[in-house]
């Protein structure tokens, strides 16, 4: 038997799940897609006393358009459903674009949107995209509900603001189509691996070609996804040309302070971080309104 002993509950309503989480507090682990938790149970890196399996709760698996043009996504929505959703493609194309880079299709068939965000692996795509988009997370507990911005949610590697007794129930993302242009790049050894370094960029460029807003988010290079503010400022108010891109690429490399690990050295991550940030900006610039720029 691989996992250590635990008590298992499979609540069939949200209320029941929240009561169980309140009752068991720190002793309980939520089981969503299991694509990160099950390896930890099998290797006994996690030995929770109680496992609360949320897969039998109805109505936690949905992708709903919101009036402001964005999306509300239920925490239990499978990564594969997000990947295949036409409304995701229309409203937040950058979210659709990252999905195929998450693991392999068999894993995305089980893995959930909420699970990836709650797990908060610093090299994971979904936390980075939600962070770049200024997403909001709905945390529910038996007695309360609070909504946190992504910047207040990701704390350190594998650590979020989700408290004992709380369940992430919904992810809210604002619209980023139309006048928003975007780029996504990551470097990994094999298709489907976690990124050694990754970048997500979002730009608004006015009719004169001047950059009006910029967001450059890097991941796999720190404990949480990171905005590179100094590089964003260097883009604002200018037309984006080669020399601007060269500067921005340099600034990104300078600003990164990654660790070395068995996958890549810190120096490699800094260097490549600047290169792929530049590529995401080039991709964003070349995308015309409403066009996927492919």
């Amino acid at each position: 038997m691989k996992p250590a002993k635990f008590e298992y509950f499979a609540p069939t309503s949200l209320a029941e799940a929240l009561e169980l989480l309140e009752e068991h507090g720190d002793d309980a682990k939520v089981l969503a897609g299991g694509q990160s938790l099950m390896p930890m149970l099998n290797m006994r890196l996690a030995r929770p006393k109680v496992v609360v399996d949320i897969n039998r709760i109805p109505n936690l698996d949905y992708i709903s358009p919101t009036p402001d043009g964005g999306l509300a996504i239920g925490a239990l929505t499978r990564q594969r459903s997000v990947e295949r959703s036409t409304v995701v493609e229309e409203r937040i194309p950058v979210l659709a674009a990252v999905m195929p880079s998450i693991a392999h299709f068999q894993i995305r068939n089980r893995g959930t949107m909420g699970g990836s965000i709650s797990h908060a692996d610093p090299a994971a795509e979904l936390p980075a995209v939600c962070f770049a988009l200024d997403g909001e997370f709905v945390l529910s507990s038996a007695s309360d509900q609070r909504v946190l911005k992504a910047e207040n949610f990701f704390i350190s590697p594998l650590t979020t603001a989700i408290g004992p007794g709380e369940l992430l129930t919904e992810i809210r993302l604002p619209a980023r189509s139309g006048e928003w242009r975007w780029g996504f790049e990551e470097v990994c050894r094999r298709q489907g691996d976690f990124a050694m370094v990754g970048a997500v960029s979002l730009l608004q460029i006015d009719d004169d070609g001047v950059c009006r807003s910029a967001c450059i988010t890097m991941f796999g290079v720190g404990g949480t996804p990171l905005r590179i503010r100094r590089a964003e400022e260097a883009l604002l108010g200018d037309r984006i040309n080669d020399s601007v891109l060269e500067d921005v690429s340099k600034i990104v490399s300078e600003e990164l302070d990654p660790d070395s690990d068995i996958h890549a050295s810190a120096a490699y991550r800094k260097e490549v971080g600047g290169v792929i940030a530049r590529r995401t900006l080039e991709a964003a610039v070349s995308r015309v309104n409403g066009d996927d720029g492919a």
Partner: peptide
Amino acid sequence: GDAVRSCLMLAVQ
């Protein structure tokens, strides 16, 4: 009908 890793699921599921 969906391809999944059977090592990453519990039998009870």
